[in-house]
Design a binder for these strands. Sequence first.
DNA 1: ATCCCTTCATGAATCGATTCAAAATGTGCG
DNA 2: CGCACATTTTGAATCGATTCATGAAGGGAT
Lengths: 335, 335
Amino acid sequence: MTTTSMKDVARAAGVSVGTVSNVLNRPEAVAEETRSRVQAAIAELGYVRNDSARQLRAGRSRTVAVVVLDVANPFFTDVVRGAEPLIESAGGVVTVCDSGEDVRRERRHLEILEEQRVLGLLITPVDDTSASWIERLSGHDIPLVLVDRGAGRHPHCSVAVDDVHGGRLAAQHLADRGHTRIAFVGGPASIPQVADRLAGCREVCDETGVALDVFTTAGLNFAAGREAVEQMLGLEERPTAMFCANDLVALGALQALTMHGVKVPQECAIIGYDDIDFAAAAAVPLSSIRQPRSQLGRTAAQLLFDEIGEGAGHTHRNVVFQPELVARASTSQEL
Amino acid sequence: MTTTSMKDVARAAGVSVGTVSNVLNRPEAVAEETRSRVQAAIAELGYVRNDSARQLRAGRSRTVAVVVLDVANPFFTDVVRGAEPLIESAGGVVTVCDSGEDVRRERRHLEILEEQRVLGLLITPVDDTSASWIERLSGHDIPLVLVDRGAGRHPHCSVAVDDVHGGRLAAQHLADRGHTRIAFVGGPASIPQVADRLAGCREVCDETGVALDVFTTAGLNFAAGREAVEQMLGLEERPTAMFCANDLVALGALQALTMHGVKVPQECAIIGYDDIDFAAAAAVPLSSIRQPRSQLGRTAAQLLFDEIGEGAGHTHRNVVFQPELVARASTSQEL
DNA sequence: ATCCCTTCATGAATCGATTCAAAATGTGCG
DNA sequence: CGCACATTTTGAATCGATTCATGAAGGGAT
């Protein structure tokens, strides 16, 4: 094993380890001549800093973890993309953890991140049972920002989108189009985003007298949408429109409907949620509820660094964005 | 700061630090009574292992990094998904790094990963200039497997798909449909996957006398596809089919064509590459060249752990998968 | 020559977990 | 009782970078 350490570099350059460290961290404090001698030795030996040792001394790593529900969902990759520039320009390193909407996986990630003494955390918790773990991290001085989720009464910063309002927008849009029986597709119900969107939807249905069938799915992906359609097609009284909890579900549903020869939007309208790029490119361009994806990420990163910077005297901020209806062909039919 | 260390736990439990360490790492070597006393102290104090210190001692981290060209591309998330189970069941931790098809970003990631002394690396290099950096890691005893890329004469394991053949399949399919002038859309040309797919395409065009227009793009995403269409529509003699270097580009192209009122496949056929889930759900279901995505990831992880396990006496393996044509509506028109 | 500054370089102490030779304790047996 | 042996526990050494009090060297000013 040829692990060259600072000591080797120091010996090769004929200086002390303290000086080598200074060359790396405060080059201006080292005389020109010495510095270049040390740098030559570093290059010569192919020396690479050992980050573990550095972190051990520093007490903290420079990693900011982003814990998302599903990395395969473009919504979350866009959120991450939004957060990255700020984190990196602050000298941080981004690591993305995928909880896969599974509390156990989420917990495993949090355990590891805690052991790694990460600098901070942007997290979209799987459900409310995540709360105790999150409090634990927070209690161990790991600053965190909740993403796509209001903080509620918890003492954290958060960036969220008003999902109840989003649910209302979707349902109202379908009601405006003349639908009198619609389906809500999404799950599991324990995911707050799903619950909120459904709640908003239900409010409008109650107000407008639209009948609502709820199809609870096991996840928020293609397969879930497909399976819900299979169920729905078996019904006596079939809804004439579907509101899907996110675009992946909607695209899965769209695909299944098309396979069964059900015309969208003539025989069944669909509206999704998130307005990912694929929505506009879908078989039938998909109506959706748009969220400011990358802004969500950017703001979250901003709040995190504010908190890190301000230290103890920090007051938490809770930012809420408003979603917006994007109407496309998949809901263009008037009944 | 309340960073409790092993020393604190040891004091609370009335034992030495060595014993605490044993409780954590070799519990069977500690007497029942002592063990539970230590565990109580751990719970009591909310002690969390410090991974930096552990790694420093161990000399290696347990992180396996996967460096991909674009996390927003479902192809790569599927590859990662394929690799994860094996890595995690081996006690590893997965971290995904996005090079964004940018050599500089890739290099920054590699520098950091080297400082972190990662356990191993699965990487899809951006282009051939990445080679020197990769050799450097390898020279520092960081085992790595090339993903979606043959090792060529480099001494590494690799899992790849025969992209030249894939290019041939696509072009042959278009030729079979009667097209006599087709476009290839993709870039930058420095990305080997792009170059190979084009090479295969060119071979077939030469053999069959099909004219080929090449549109070199700056990246492999929606925008690239859209921009290429804008260019193409300006041409005197317009191709009747497009072969896009991946599905994202194809979907972007499809969207742009639709916006310009060009009918797919009647006025212009499209075939993509990767067969991501969205392909089948597209505005016009997209023909594509399928790659065994998650198998690629799984096999790569397997090779990596083989290499780690076998140590010095390891002989590199190069696995090549064959791609497969999936014909859908976007190329269904006979000319 | 002396004293004071400034500029650089030094090296021991430190972070926290792991390891392992050595010590302590307990058990069984002649 | 004493010796051999098994079972536990101990604590000092170690990993590698950073920090900082201390010291050395060089330059002016008097």
